[in-house]
Design a binder for these strands. Sequence first.
RNA 1: UGGGGCGUGGCCAAGUGGUAAGGCGGCGGACUUUGAAUCCGUGAUUCGUAGGUUCGAAUCCUACCGCCCCAGCCA
Length: 566
Amino acid sequence: MAQEVTGPSNFIEEAVEADLASRRFDRVQTRFPPEPNGYLHIGHAKAISIDFGVAEKYGGRCNLRFDDTNPIKEETEYVEAIMHDIRWLGYDWGEGLYYASDYFEQLYQWAVQLVQAGKAYVCDLSPDEVRAYRGTLTEPGQESPYRNRTVEENLGLLERMRAGEFPEGACTLRAKIDMAASNINLRDPVMYRILHAEHHRTGDQWCIYPMYDWAHGQSDSIERISHSLCDIFYEDHRPLYDWFLEQLGVFHPRQIEFARLNITHTVLSKRKLLRLVKEGYVAGWDDPRMPTLSGLRRRGYTPAAVRDFCERIGVAKADSVVDIALLEHCIRQDLDRQAPRVMAVLNPLRVVIENYPEDQVEEFEADNHPGDESMGTRMLPFSRVLYIEREDFHEDPPKQYFRLAPGREVRLKYAYIIRCVEVVKDENGAVVELRCTYDPDTRGGATPDGRKVRGTLHWVAADHAIDAEVRLYDHLFRLPEPENVAEEQDFTAAINPDSLVVLTGCKLEHHLAGAEIGSHYQFMRMGYFVADPDSTAARPIFNRTVALRDTWAKIKQAMEQEEQGD
RNA sequence: UGGGGCGUGGCCAAGUGGUAAGGCGGCGGACUUUGAAUCCGUGAUUCGUAGGUUCGAAUCCUACCGCCCCAGCCA
């Protein structure tokens, strides 16, 4: 239980330490307050990492509280999914599971208290009228004609609101603050609205529901939250947060805001993610291209990688857009450590070793992880007919290409060095097969004569390989900032048409048969892949989590650009 | 144009008056039976701009510029 004695690593921790030192709070209690109206995404992971992280660092606790004050949008299904995702990330709220709806009665009693103190009133203005009375950014609002009702009248009206005597929209309970406040949130904000809707937890017990501002701070107070950490869009709400707590004279948490996460080549707003799903741009909330935690999980991201990412991006208040390359770096680093290496040929090209005996099968020992002996080895069958990657052969090889080409030599990893002696084509001139010879002296891929063989290819023996479907995923958006699209267009215009490429007839080494769903592998030289839940025993399916860094692709690109430049 | 917030290398981000950390990316190199991994090297005379205070300023003061957020009975 020893605490790490590291200093504050950001402005929030600085504030927390100051509050502890000044005895403003004697312990740290935070909370993560999602609204159960959608799935968690990596932006939430940042918030979770901060909320739970700060609590953990200072020996405190972090609650999970569902902010379920709008029955129209919220569902139990989301509650379950959110809890699952938080657990998946590896965080534990212990006994601290709460719902804002647990506090409805207390909130109501407090509302009565404010009415009695002359600080709140029932307003009969229609939604349109409320908007008109609110004023604008530069002009003050006007006071509601109902603002000066007597305490008795307000009490009676509030009671009748609760009793269900009024239709939706007929009236609201408003805080009496200041219609001329420069902060619009202080212009008599609505505390309760009437909603004759079934709530996922309280059923039809209530027909008036508290607004966020009226519920949040008080919920924090009830839970004795010391630091209420939220995103920067709530900064304008803090004066109101403080006002309610002060009027009530209850425990007063401190709200601190931090900047939201943005990532290149992706969108992170619930509204936009919902559109992607609803309009069929992706297959669902857990589509591997989605930045949702369920999507990332299905894509093959690990909790460790997501957490590492959240730590590396830092915590600040400035608007920022994190390069998605950082996320990719995090998952590569984690998977490089733990993913077993296997051989998988995605776009197979048939190779016949002419001087290799027809019926012979040899087995070669392959490392499961070249950097970690403890992961052991496995045996790979080798025979006369093999498959290699189509892109590992070039009939007319470009400069600096050191893979297979007519007359050239290349090493088959763990097996032999082979030379291409003939290219077989179909009637259209497409390469359908390579005829090669192997050098028996290079068993295991060795070069006893000391000759240099730059290219080492992955391969699979034709008769021993299994077939699989492989789904190649790429950024969902081709633009770093999907909103940066021509006028008249929206972010969907930036969708990458090649964000999913489905490959069938891929040839994998037989050890991959029956791979457990969710298990991670490095397909050597190709990238990291994970077994998709759609897999069946007869038809395994793998998703590419992320490609390997590809120096050759960069060289190729540079050469192409140079050609264009000339 | 009211209020709030923010401006440090391509992208994040430390720095809290003593002379610009770190990560990602890029580039160059070493090594290599994954063009992977690993390792090494590499960039801010300058911190939005202009003044000022000071022996000394990214850090303090003033003015200006730019970007983001707020006018739901959503959260």
